[in-house]
Amino acid sequence: MATSLRAEVERLLGEAGVRINGPEPWDMQIHNDKLFDRVMKEGSIGLGEAYMDGWWEAGKLDEFCNRILRTELDRHFTGTLAKILKNVTSLFRNPQNSKKAYEVGERHYDAGNDLYQVMLDPRMVYTCGYWNGADTLAEAQENKLDHVCRILDLQPGDKVLDIGCGWGSFAQFAAEKYEVEVVGITISKKQAELARERCQGLPVEIRLQDYREVDEKFDHIISLGMFEHVGPKNYRTYFQVVDRCLDEEGIFVLHTIGANHSNRRTDPWTEKYIFPNSRIPSIRHIGLAIEDLFVMEDWSNHGPDYDKTLMAWHQNFSEGWDRIKDQYSERFRRMWDYYLLMAAGGFRARKNNQWQIVLTKKGRGERVKIPAL
């Protein structure tokens, strides 16, 4: 990298309080002088892969990301560097059609149940926890699950569809605590296997199934942390499926990461290593997709809770690494560190949001009462 260009990068990083080889834990520590050349040539993939290869470090990678994004340094750059910094805010990309729906299951959610058992809470909730009054990750996740159940006003015998059921966390909780029947669908074989095991003996059915294939009625529907895999081209279809499957008096609760603008790009590193074929929706995306189908009862943002959730996942992952390291490479460990910590920084900078959206059909006579957290 030319000396003059390196000096300009250092100057702009300084505006975010980040220094190259500086003393603060959020400063970039460079271990290979070829880093800048690699990033200029390869963009976001080069930056992430260089971290995976040990070419650079940051003691607090989450805070490094937060400072870069809050200062919006991308506005000062043109060309490749502008794309790099803008793409850090994007974690997901959309699947184009049903043929690709199972790819993220195979490449991400099937990475290994042992990995997720180490990283997540005992109920294995792989979405944002609600930390109000919670001291632990387990408490935060039970807060969230119970809050969703109370929004639905679940009654014994109700039948609930869980779109993107993961390892059965909601299904198990709702069946045990509220005596309801749950059908959970997932595109991950390993999730389905473990979810069936965890929900054994409960009125829960776990299916390996794409959401477009569901065509039956449910009292209520929930979808927690799956909508990021639907994509703009499929949003309307997704909500039409919910519309045809939801009872006239039913309630639909949607949890999704949300973007502050309608994003037309994704981060190539995240696409390659973490979430293939996914995209973060915007308010406009969702608004257009639900138009003339649903009444929007409530829309709340829990983004700061996701920062805390990701940091808790990273702590669990770090503390439990020795238990699973024989199954994964050191490069995988650095990849997972990069994923979790950069994502936490994105939520801390408020570039990403965690939306809880409550929708009903136009025929419902009563408004939905949103319980306090």
Rank of each mutant, 00 (worst) to 15 (best):
R284Q: 13
H285T: 12
H285C: 10
G287D: 09
A289K: 08
A289W: 07
A289R: 09
A289N: 06
A289S: 13
A289F: 10
I290V: 14
I290A: 07
E291D: 13
E291I: 04
D292H: 11
D292L: 04
V295Y: 06
M296P: 02
E297K: 05
E297V: 01
D298R: 06
D298T: 01
S300F: 03
S300Q: 11
N301Q: 02
N301K: 00
N301T: 02
G303V: 07
G303K: 09
P304Q: 01
Y306W: 05
Y306H: 06
Y306S: 02
D307P: 00
D307S: 04
D307K: 08
K308D: 00
K308C: 00
K308S: 02
K308I: 01
T309M: 00
L310T: 04
L310M: 11
L310R: 01
M311A: 02
M311L: 12
M311P: 00
M311C: 02
A312I: 02
A312W: 00
A312E: 08
W313G: 02
W313C: 02
H314Y: 12
H314L: 04
Q315N: 03
N316F: 09
S318E: 11
E319H: 11
E319M: 10
D322L: 06
R323E: 12
R323I: 03
I324P: 03
K325Q: 14
K325P: 04
K325Y: 04
D326G: 14
D326L: 11
D326M: 09
Q327A: 10
Q327D: 12
Y328F: 15
E330T: 11
E330N: 12
F332I: 10
R333M: 12
R333Y: 15
R334C: 09
R334Q: 08
M335H: 06
M335V: 05
W336M: 11
W336L: 10
D337Q: 13
D337N: 14
Y338T: 09
Y338E: 03
Y339W: 13
Y339P: 03
Y339D: 06
Y339A: 04
L341P: 09
M342K: 14
M342R: 13
M342L: 15
M342V: 05
A344M: 13
A344I: 05
A344V: 06
A344C: 12
A344D: 15
G345Q: 13
G345H: 14
G345R: 14
G346E: 15
G346Y: 11
G346T: 08
G346I: 04
G346D: 12
F347S: 07
F347L: 14
R348Q: 15
A349F: 15
A349K: 14
A349C: 14
K351D: 15
N353A: 12
N353E: 15
Q354N: 11
W355G: 06
W355N: 08
Q356F: 09
I357E: 04
V358R: 08
L359N: 06
T360A: 13
T360W: 10
T360Q: 08
K361I: 06
K361V: 05
